[in-house]
Design a protein around this nucleic acid. Structure first.
Length: 290
DNA sequence: CTCCAGGGATGAT
DNA sequence: ATCATCCATGGA
């Protein structure tokens, strides 16, 4: 099998795909299969090279954000103990550039769900309503367009195990599919206006809006606060302080972590989730005891 | 500000 | 085999 390749310094493909920002790539041999937009893609890392099939080098490099100046981004992080530990743990993790609708829709389904569930919902939606692509003998499916989902019934989405999220995804798909909400045009807006627009969509609150800003609009300051991050913040940055409100945390994150706060968040998040399975309970217990 | 519905996988018993 | 746990949004 003949694959094209490009140089990918300071990049860890497996870590990036397993960091809770994207949910459809599947292990296949020594690499992964998935989609980038409408293309079925295989990608495999060998040292500092990415071998791939199904898309152009340009598309691959853009999707995986190989142009992000990762060293510079890491240097911009605050140098506290928690941040340094996360930075060392997450070498090569990049925040990738996801298609806007796919990212928005996926994060609407993500609410109150863990990674394993999100992957299953994404897979069900793709298999039933996406377009089939063959790649190296594997089967992949594109994420269904907004106008495709807009035509479905709530029951169809519930059958993909979306639960109450079905209503929200359907309502948002209708707004996006009709052009009433123009996700591409919104990319011109400044952060605050973009966040406002996203939050006006059904099923999108502050957390989901920040995820979409970070993963689909390249707003690298956006700092999604989920339970994992909140745990880290309270433990590492506000130890033994009761009564730190959500608003106080939000303000702290917006300033303290700087212009690449979103990267800092992703590193803290991935480190917290992945550092061993055992300390998890301990960490949670320690948090609630504060 | 607080409370709580919601649902399906996952880990504990 | 049941039982508790995980969790974002939106509305009361």
């Amino acid at each position: 099998m003949r694959l094209a390749h490009i140089t990918a310094d300071d990049f860890d493909l497996a870590r990036t795909l397993d960091s809770g920002q994207v949910f459809h790539w599947e292990k296949c041999g020594d690499g992964f299969i998935g989609t980038i937009g409408t293309k079925g893609v295989y990608v495999e890392q060998r040292r500092n090279r990415l071998f791939f099939k199904g898309a152009t080098a340009k598309v691959i490099a853009h999707y995986f954000a190989l142009d992000h100046p990762l060293e510079e981004i890491c240097r911009s992080f605050p140098e506290d103990a928690a941040m340094c530990a996360a930075r060392d743990f997450c070498q090569g993790l990049r925040i990738i550039r996801q298609p806007r609708w796919e990212c928005l829709a996926t994060f609407i389904t993500s609410s109150m769900k863990q990674v394993a569930h999100i992957r299953q919902m994404s897979r069900a939606l793709r298999e039933r309503y996406g377009e089939h692509r063959k790649i190296l003998g594997g089967q992949v499916y594109t994420f269904p367009r907004a106008d495709r989902i807009a035509k479905l019934a709530e029951e169809d989405l519930r059958a993909c195990a979306l639960g109450y999220r079905a209503k929200n995804l359907l309502a948002t798909a209708r707004r996006v599919g009709s052009g009433e909400a123009d996700l591409e045009k919104w990319s011109q807006l400044p952060d605050e206006s973009l966040r406002e627009r996203l939050c006006s969509l059904p099923g999108v609150g502050a957390k989901v809006a920040n995820c979409v800003m970070l993963f689909a609009y390249e707003r690298l300051r956006a700092f999604p606060i989920d339970v994992w991050i909140e745990r880290v913040l309270r433990q590492k940055y506000f130890p033994r302080r009761r009564k730190v409100t959500a608003a106080q945390l939000r303000v702290f994150c917006e300033t303290y972590f700087g212009e690449h706060g979103g990267y800092a968040q992703q590193y803290l998040f991935h480190h917290a989730r992945k550092r061993a399975a055992a300390p998890e309970r301990e960490a949670r217990a320690g948090c609630s005891a504060l």
